[in-house]
Amino acid sequence: MKKAGFLIAGAMLFTAACGAEENAPELNETGGNNGDNNVENNADTNEAADNEDTDENNNEENGAENEEDAYEEGDTLIMGTSADYPPFEYIETGESEEIVGFDIDLANRITEELGYELEVEDMDFGSLIPALDTDRVDFVMAGMRPTEERRENADFSDIYFRSAHSIVTAADSGIEDVDDLEGMTLGVQLGSIQEGQAEELQEDVEGIEVETRDRIPEMIQEIHTNRFDAVILADTVADNYTDDNDDLTSFTLPNEAEEDGNAIAFQLDSQLTEEFNGVLAELEESGELDELILEWFDGDVADAAGAGEDEEETEEDNDAENNEEADEDNNNTNED
C-alpha cells in the first residue's frame, strides 16, 4: 500500500516538476512525437516503458481533452453531487454508504435511456462547478438552479423541478409575512438561487440585513443562536426542517422568477445538454417525472429522510423505508 502510494506520489512530483514546461505543449499535439516524455513518465510510474504503455497514456490524455464531444453509448458518465440535501440527494447513513434521492433516481433514469453507465461522486456544493469546469465530472445534479452567473460557466438543461421559496423563522418570532421582516437579519445560503430572492426582498422591505452561510444546517443553527431572525430556503427543504424542529415555523413566498427550479448542469457546449433535454421532455410527457416527484416529495418519504428527533420514530421510519429502498436500489446502478 505504502509502496504503491509512494510510487504514485513520486510520479506526481516528477510530473509536477517537469510538467509546466514539457507537458504543456504536448497536449496540443495529437499522437505524434511526444513518446519520449511519456516513456519517462511511465518508467517512473510503472517501471515498464514499452510502447503499449506509451500509447495507452496518449489515448488517456487525448481522451480527457476531447471528452466534451465524444460521448458514446456505453460510456460511463460521472455525476457530481453534494449528498447532504435530502430528499434530492443524501445518504441514509444508518443503512448504507450509498447516495440516494430524487436527483439520483432521475439521473439513473435518463442515463439508462441514453445508454450510458452512471457513476455518482460526492463533493462539497461549492466544488461542483469547478469540478465540471476541470472535467472531473460530466454533469452535475445537486438541486442546482441555473443562475445567470452559473450559466457563464456551465450549460443547463431544462428545469426538471420547480419549487417555491420559504422563509423559516423561530416559532416564537412573530414573523408571519414578508412585511414583518423589516429591520430583521435574513440568512441565505451562499451561491444559492435564494440569494437573488433575498436581494429582491431587500429592495421591497426596508432594513433587511442579508447574511450568507455555506450550509443550510449552519443557517438553521444561526436561528437557534439568535443571530438570524429568518432564513430563506427552498420550500421542500424548509418543510423538512419545520417538521423536525418544533421551535421553527415557515411561510411560503410568492413564486415569480422564471429560473426558479432545478436543472442539470453540463460543461459548456456539451452534447449531453441536448440528449438529456430530449429524455427529460419524454419523461415529462409520459408522466414519469411527476411519478418520481411524488415518490420523493409526497411527505412520507421526505419525513423519513429527516430522521426525527425522537429515536423510536426514527427507527420505525427507517424500517418502513427499507422496503421502499430495496426496490429503488435495484434501479441504482451507480456507486461502486
Binding site: D84, Y90, P217
Partner: peptide, 12 residues
C-alpha cells in the same frame, strides 16, 4: 461524513 449526517438528520 459528519456533514452528510447533519444534512440527512437536519441536525447540525
Amino acid at each position: 461524513r459528519a456533514y452528510i449526517v447533519g444534512g440527512e438528520t437536519f441536525s447540525y
